[in-house]
Simulated scan of single mutants.
Amino acid sequence: MFEKVETYPIDPIMIGAEYFAADPRREKLNLTVGIYQDEHGQTPVLKAVKLAEQRLVETQTSKSYLALTGDADYCRVLGHEVLGKAYDDGWVSAQTSGGAVALRVVADLLAQIPTPPTVWLQTPTYGNYVPILTAARARFAHLPYYDPIKAEITFDRMLEGLSAAKPGDVFLMQGLCHNPTGADMSRAQFDALLDVLEARGIIPWIDLAYLGFAQSWDADCAMARQIAARFPECIVCITLSKTFGIYRDRAGALFVKTQRPDRDRIHRAVSAIVRSGASHAPDHGPSVVRTILQDPALKTHWRNELDQMRARVAQVRQQIADVERAEFDTDLLAYIAKQSGMFSLLPLTEAQETALTRDHGIHVVKGGRVNVARLGESDITKLIGAIIEVASAK
């Protein structure tokens, strides 16, 4: 039976990690990993998280199942934190196992609509969108978002591509710290995009995976709040893996804003999809988040730690630009200092990217994505020198 199973597409992030593990060189550098790491190469457990966990150990009275849509208090607290006053309008909410499950629930929901909408994707974009939409048999199409060689957003081309969208279609965007490019729309561009979506009757679907890593927690929530206040129907998916450093504990959420007559029906649909897939979401991570957000002291402690992580990533980005200018007298990577979040795309061709790994032991995700948060001070000069060498080779 199993010999008939066809070969699945290779996940570029997972295969990149495998190639790194198989590389025998000691002086190799892994920039494929998609998690925050400090200057020592560690992914720390936040002190606020530890304190919240201790409180849960002392006070939690049951490990029984929650509702299929999870802990209502967690959804309510997180909804108000992210969406602000707009959350009072009433939403269909669900606690999910990270952001990927939230995305998959929406993909299943859209695929089951009698006349399925097309989901429009930025290109390049998060590598798991296409596998999720494909597995759900949802319709999707691509729009040009970023030119990696010029290191700039192709915003006008993206809007031109949306002219093919129909009313009721869905635009899936990342709110900030765009993965894999690190290039976020300006405020003016975002406003122009929302004007187009509203004029054409396109539903905004925003995926928030890096809240607090661009400017601040509140500033990073502004895009979702703007969408939530403006559109009668919209979708918000959230993962808190990076924001709270609880990757393996799978804390996420789904928020769907609907017209009031549709709300109960959409809640039943979401519950049924959750039941047929992930079923009940794990609750340890979400309970930690709820505990922190409901306690002013823990919340302040967590925000300070989040600010420290964001500041370190911004510092590494600036160091890349400064070191290149000071030691190599070039500005090939200067754009990295102007971007946000953990990821950026290197301005390399496929052949140059291959040479970077083959000749220098620097492993990146296929397509040139690097995790700048992984870089220590001693790595920066090595990375810059290797990129300049492969980029100048003929």
Rank of each mutant, 00 (worst) to 15 (best):
Y247V: 05
Q95T: 05
E6S: 14
A183Y: 03
L83I: 05
R265V: 11
D331V: 15
R225L: 03
A229Q: 10
K4T: 14
P347Q: 03
Q319H: 07
A351S: 07
P204H: 01
T61G: 07
T115L: 13
A151W: 00
E27P: 09
L293D: 04
F155H: 06
G161K: 01
A135C: 10
V49F: 02
A393D: 10
V33Q: 11
L56P: 00
V289M: 05
K47H: 13
I246P: 00
G212S: 08
I10P: 01
Y87S: 03
H360Y: 13
G201R: 09
V313A: 03
V105F: 08
H40T: 14
D359K: 11
Q319G: 02
P24A: 09
L143S: 00
M173I: 11
L208E: 00
K242R: 13
V372H: 01
A326Y: 08
T61I: 09
V105W: 06
T381N: 14
S97T: 12
H280G: 07
Q215Y: 15
F343E: 01
Q189E: 14
R265A: 14
M158Q: 08
A355I: 01
G175D: 02
H360R: 05
P24Q: 08
R55C: 08
Q189W: 09
R317C: 02
E305R: 04
I149W: 06
M1T: 12
V49G: 01
L333W: 03
E324A: 03
W120N: 03
R358M: 10
L345H: 00
E3T: 11
L109C: 08
E353R: 02
D218K: 09
T154H: 01
A136E: 00
Q112D: 12
Q215G: 10
M223Y: 11
A111L: 10
R265I: 12
V119L: 02
A86R: 00
V313E: 00
A102R: 06
Y210F: 14
L208F: 05
I235Y: 01
S93Y: 07
K299W: 10
K382F: 11
I203L: 09
T330G: 07
Y74N: 04
V390L: 05
V57W: 10
I380V: 14
S241G: 15
I387T: 07
D73F: 11
G361L: 04
I266V: 15
P12Y: 01
L133T: 03
R369K: 12
E198R: 11
A253V: 04
T300A: 15
I336E: 00
Y126V: 07
A386E: 06
S93I: 07
V313Q: 01
D218G: 04
T125C: 10
M223L: 14
S378W: 10
D156M: 11
A183S: 09
D379N: 11
L211M: 10
L197W: 02
E389Y: 10
L121S: 02
D89L: 12
E160D: 15
V105Q: 06
K47G: 12
R187W: 13
V256Y: 05
W91V: 04
R303V: 08
P296C: 08
D322L: 11
A165G: 04
K63P: 08
A164L: 11
E233A: 15
K28N: 06
K299N: 13
D331K: 14
S344C: 15
T357G: 11
D71C: 08
M309F: 10
